[in-house]
Computed example of a mutant assay.
Amino acid sequence: MVRDSDGVGDVSKDHLRLLARVARMYHEQGIRQPEIAAALHLSQPRVSRLLKEAVTRGLVRTVVTLPEGVHTELEEELQRRYALRDAVVVDVEDYQDDVVPSLATAAAAYLDVTFTGGDVIGLAAWSQTLQAVVQRLPQKNVQVADRVIQLVGGVGTAGDQVRATRLIARLADLTYAHPVFVPLPGLVATAATREALLQDPDLAEVQAQWREVTVALVGIGEPASAPVRDTDRDELRAVGGVGEVCLHFFDATGKPVASDLDRRVIGIDTASFGAVGRRIAVAGGLRKLPAIRAALEGGWVNILVTDLRVARRLCS
């Protein structure tokens, strides 16, 4: 009698030899269980038990070989390190080009699988990355969302606002959802103007629906590229702002920074946004690394689609 290496129990060499033979026939030679049973004059149920025992005693160990371009281990490390619900790491072929097309393709594939029905989707519609995502999202065969809601009012030029409205409408059409628009600008001149506009009945209805969002789809921005005035950028840098989600700015640790801008934004409030169950960010490129890291540190998002270089830096 010998004790097997995993300490499961004493077993005879003859039994170990039988375990090894059955395991090799099945796993290495590809012989089916009925044929193994016939060749060794065993019952098929016993062959099945022997195969299970071979795994239990450590004679058979499963090794998963990842295909090229798949980075499951890195995705799992991102989940562990930043308490994410999920992560998707995209292998960009040529970093001399824009990472957005690769991110958008991967994000569209992810959303196509995870939009399964009944969701209320919130969308930060001015993001060029998210515009690319929605362009690649296939038409669903059945309704997979109840509503698609604009998370922030119109920002940028008149053309930008038209594109944002079309984006909300397109995502609603693809998911057979009802579109909900914010009929006001996303940034106003003064805090007093914002307070007055918040009394608008149409906006009050949208505000109530923001609290019902189950999936938020956002980008992660930075002061340099945010659709704000130069004076706002200067103030944000002065108070340590490194990134933003839905025009809510935060510092390198992910903590919100106080600024005049925050009192002029018409969009989902931080409490309602933080209560959304799935907060998906699609963001990449080393230029955005500080903003992405800060967003993760602060728990602004809990699902990330990013590129391989950024993912490696986030885990280093």
Rank of each mutant, 00 (worst) to 15 (best):
Arg21Tyr: 09
His27Cys: 10
Val180Cys: 02
Ala177Gly: 01
Ala252Ile: 00
Ala295Gly: 12
Val113Tyr: 01
Asp173Cys: 10
Leu66Glu: 09
Asp94Glu: 05
Gln139Trp: 03
Arg136Val: 14
Val89Glu: 00
Glu35His: 09
Val22Gln: 15
Val228Phe: 02
Arg32Ala: 12
Thr193Asn: 08
Gly219His: 07
Arg229Leu: 12
Arg80Gly: 14
Pro223Asp: 08
Leu174Val: 02
Ala132Trp: 03
Pro201Tyr: 01
Val8Asn: 04
Leu66Tyr: 08
Val228Pro: 03
Gln199Phe: 00
Ala104Trp: 00
Asp269Thr: 05
Phe273Lys: 15
Arg57Ser: 15
Asp86Lys: 08
Arg21Pro: 14
Ala295Thr: 06
Gly219Asn: 11
Gln150Lys: 14
Glu35Arg: 11
His41Ile: 15
Ala192Gln: 10
Val206Ala: 06
Arg278Tyr: 09
Arg293Leu: 04
Met1Ser: 12
Asp4Ser: 13
Gln143Ser: 15
Tyr26Val: 06
Arg194Phe: 04
Val144Arg: 04
Val310Phe: 00
Gly156Cys: 07
Asp91Tyr: 05
Val180Thr: 12
Pro290Lys: 01
Gly241Ala: 07
Arg81Asn: 04
Gln139Tyr: 05
Thr56Ser: 14
Thr306His: 03
Asp160Asn: 07
Val8Trp: 08
Gln161His: 11
Leu286Ile: 15
Thr157Lys: 03
Asp10Ser: 12
Ala20Gln: 01
Val213Arg: 08
Arg233Ser: 13
Asp307Trp: 01
Pro45Asp: 01
Arg233Gln: 06
Ala281Glu: 12
Glu244His: 07
Asp251Asn: 15
Asp230Asn: 09
Gly243Ala: 09
Glu212Phe: 00
Gly186Pro: 15
Arg24Cys: 11
Pro201Met: 07
Ser225Leu: 09
Leu74Arg: 15
Asp160Met: 15
Leu19Tyr: 00
Arg264Tyr: 06
Ser259Arg: 03
Arg237Ala: 14
Glu53Pro: 13
Val301Gln: 04
Pro223Gln: 13
Asp173Ile: 05
His27Met: 11
Ala216Gln: 06
Gly219Cys: 09
Lys140Leu: 13
Arg163Lys: 09
Asp112Val: 15
Arg211Thr: 07
His27Trp: 01
Gln96Leu: 07
Leu111Ala: 07
Ala189Leu: 04
Gln139Val: 01
Asp230Trp: 05
Ala224Asn: 14
Gly30Asp: 02
Pro290Ala: 02
Trp300Asp: 06
Arg279Cys: 02
Thr193Phe: 03
Ala177Glu: 03
Ala196Leu: 05
Ala158Thr: 14
Glu93Cys: 00
His71Trp: 05
Leu40Cys: 13
Ser102Pro: 09
Glu28Asp: 13
Asp234Tyr: 09
Asn302Gln: 00
Gly118Thr: 03
Glu35Gln: 10
Leu151Pro: 15
Ala54Lys: 04
Tyr82Gln: 02
Gly285Tyr: 00
Cys315Lys: 00
Glu212Pro: 03
Tyr95Asn: 04
Ala38Arg: 04
Pro67Thr: 14
Ala291Ser: 12
Val218Cys: 02
Gln135Asp: 06
Ile36Val: 12
Asp112Met: 14
Ile220Met: 00
Pro183Ile: 11
Val11Cys: 09
Leu78Ile: 08
Leu42Glu: 02
Phe249Leu: 01
Ser5Thr: 08
Ala39Phe: 02
Gln135Phe: 00
Ile220His: 02
Arg80His: 06
